[in-house]
């Protein structure tokens, strides 16, 4: 029996500061809505009761950058919109993370043309890329959980790994089976 368990029996929990801080950050991440196109529909259903993003402490999805620390860029960003995305990112308080949801936000997707920014990583640093056109809500939730894993590994002084993005590309995501209406 170690000292930690002994202390826990007495009602004292020992941990280190980084774990406590990262635990707090992952379990109350406030997303900034950035629905720009069809991916926003999947993002909305991820928040709705079927998939229930609130399980991860993401109760409040609102378009208010000052109170957010996670930006989900869902959809293609046009070049005229790009300064707005960067402006909102600059308004968010540190620490802040960005998820590029879908192919268009990750790399431009099918829109390889003059009007669309070829990947939102040209304007804001991206932590997690979620592939799909559009990605299913499970894929988005998977990306958010990947981000949680990443945040849990963060150090207060910062590591090299912290700046490296993650790509979420899982072809065989488990589909939630919906009850048949007839049966």
């Amino acid at each position: 029996m170690g000292i930690e368990q002994k202390a826990a029996d007495m009602g004292v929990v020992t941990t280190n500061l980084e774990m406590a801080v990262n635990w707090g950050r992952t379990n109350a991440m406030w997303p900034l809505l950035f629905g720009l196109a069809c991916c926003a529909i999947e993002m909305m259903s991820a928040q709705a009761s079927n998939y229930d993003l609130s399980r991860f402490g993401m109760e409040l999805n609102r378009p208010s950058p000052r109170q957010s620390d996670l930006m989900i860029v869902a959809g293609r960003v046009s070049r005229k919109m790009a300064p707005v995305v960067r402006h909102l990112y600059d308004q968010m308080t540190d620490p802040k993370w960005v998820i590029a949801m879908g192919d268009c936000a990750s790399c431009g997707g099918v829109y390889n043309n003059y009007a669309i920014v070829q990947g939102v990583d040209e304007i804001v640093p991206v932590d997690v890329y979620v592939a799909g056109c559009p990605p299913r809500p499970e894929a988005l939730i998977d990306g958010i959980m990947m981000l949680h894993e990443k945040v849990k590994r963060e150090k207060v002084i910062g590591t090299e790994e912290q700046d490296k993005p993650i790509w979420v590309m899982r072809a065989n995501l488990i589909q939630v089976s919906m009850p048949d209406e007839k049966s």
Binding site: N113, Y114, Q118
Partner: peptide
């Protein structure tokens, strides 16, 4: 002016 026919179609090379 992007819709002119002599403007190239793609914006960047596909990776």
């Amino acid at each position: 002016h992007p819709q002119r026919k002599d403007v190239p179609l793609g914006y960047e090379e596909v990776a």
